[in-house]
Design a protein around this nucleic acid. Structure first.
Length: 283
DNA sequence: AGTGTCGCCTGAATGC
DNA sequence: TGCATTCAGGCGACAC
């Protein structure tokens, strides 16, 4: 799923049915997703009014007026559907619908997650910043505190490759496999370079590229490979703008070489994850 | 402490 | 056609 841009698009879709609205009824159709639901999960949500909805990294955070925050992660395959109050389909459940929120205005929010790698848990708002995973999480890449200096400080002692370092949520929040590949391509950096060995100019270019690729992906409605959808069911479009991701053997956008001879975009495995890159433009 | 590997789960794509 | 295998956006437990 969902990396930062996809979660942000979902957050924007949820905003109009959340803010100021009340959860009239919470329904669970599975005892657990990634983790078991706590025994008082629905009790704490039923009747709760939403006071704020935010995103931190790949997490949705929904504050309630009872001092709790719903921490919601979409995992790899999580989808959110929103039915409006006047939509007659809104009570039709489909396979892998695990959580349903009936809202006081008649709208319905459904969490569908075939692989069940997603989760929901409740935490006191006052404990949120001090608790995992937020207590060690890196800066928001689209926020003011993320720049070349911040990225440089976070990776200067890292002895792993820069691709794996970008996937570390404690370095920068919200970057996953797709956008790590794309940002490295955009910055012209070999993904195998050790993070601690990156030159300052490369670190600065990478910070700019991370920000730029995420902004572009949000503008395009995210990337739909298999599972991801916007909350109204529509697809993302950023997958059509990939430079390297899932493009093994194809030319990269800036390609000037003979793909037959050079082989085009390469796929390698780093730390158990696929990395796509252009050996000509990323050195 | 930091880093790398594995498993969680289902479904789609691929290979035989 | 059908069955087995492989792989997928993430995360955390674990071993080293």
């Amino acid at each position: 799923m969902p990396e930062l841009p996809e979660v942000e698009i979902v957050r924007r879709g949820l905003e109009p049915v959340l803010n100021g609205n009340t959860i009239a009824a919470c329904h669970l159709f599975a005892p657990a997703l990634r983790y078991p639901f706590s025994a008082n999960f629905c009790t704490l949500l039923d009747g709760g009014t939403i006071t704020a909805s935010r995103r931190r990294g790949k997490y949705l955070l929904i504050d309630l007026d009872n001092a709790y925050c719903l921490i919601w992660h979409l995992g790899m395959s999580g989808r959110v559907r929103i039915y409006r109050a006047d939509d007659e389909e809104r009570h039709a459940r489909i396979k892998h619908d695990h959580v349903v929120f009936e809202m006081s205005d008649g709208s319905v929010i459904v969490f569908n997650d075939p692989r069940r790698f997603g989760f929901m848990k409740l935490e006191r708002q006052s404990d949120l910043d001090a608790s995992a995973p937020f207590n060690k999480m890196g800066p928001e890449p689209l926020g003011n505190s993320f720049n070349g200096d911040a990225l440089g400080a976070a990776i200067k002692n890292k002895k792993t490759n820069i691709k794996a370092a970008l996937l570390d949520q404690n370095v920068v929040a919200g970057v996953g496999n797709i956008y790590a590949c794309e940002a490295l391509y955009m910055a012209g950096i070999d993904p195998a370079t050790l993070a601690c060995d990156l030159k300052k100019t490369h670190v600065e270019a990478l910070a700019r590229a991370v920000r730029a690729v995420l902004v572009k992906a949000i503008e395009a409605g995210g990337s739909t490979l298999k599972d991801y959808r916007q909350t109204d069911g529509s697809l993302g479009y950023f997958q059509h703008m990939f430079g390297v991701y899932d493009r093994e053997g194809k030319p990269c956008p800036d390609c000037t070489c003979d793909v037959i001879v050079r082989g085009g975009v390469q796929r390698i495995v780093q730390n158990g994850r696929s990395t796509f890159y252009c050996p000509v433009r990323q050195k």
